[in-house]
Design a protein around this nucleic acid. Sequence first.
DNA 1: CCCTGATTCGC
DNA 2: GCGAATCAGG
Length: 174
Amino acid sequence: MNWTDERVEKLKKLWSEGLSASQIAAQLGGVSRNAVIGKVHRLCLPGRAKAGGSTTTATRTKRPATSAPRAPNYAARIATRTVTRTTGATVMKEEMEIDAVEDQDVAPVSNVVVPMSRRLALTQLTDRTCKWPIGDPMKDEFHFCGNDSPDTSPYCTFHAKLAYQPSGERRRAR
DNA sequence: CCCTGATTCGC
DNA sequence: GCGAATCAGG
């Protein structure tokens, strides 16, 4: 995958909306979260104040620039590689999620991860259908997931994990 | 262990 | 320029 203008624009948009790198990667497809972060840096986009999943609201400022940025010790890097790989479910999981979304678009039948794919149009959505958008909104094949979603979420259990939840609360679906 | 972003560096 | 590997942290 290469960074077309379209993809860069989407990246900028999602990043500015506060989506995490992995979530953006999942939506763009074909890239890892590392790729997203790397691109963000190359674009000189404003980074997050602090890392960490729990929405660090204006936490401490960045590292003191006085000390060296970092000194990657390649000996140590090699030493920890095996450990990281054994653990490393991160990359694997991302790939699985991306594949699942794409599979749904191509082969809607009998998907283990997403058992049902109804490919609903906007007007077909109900309170109980997943509203996760699939495809390019500007193109004809655009549709919504349409799987059953619990009353507590606008998304099915699969897409709920990918959905961005604003820190406050989700506006009540009307 | 799950996740987050940040950084380095081989390609 | 790209992104995997790694680091650092919640």
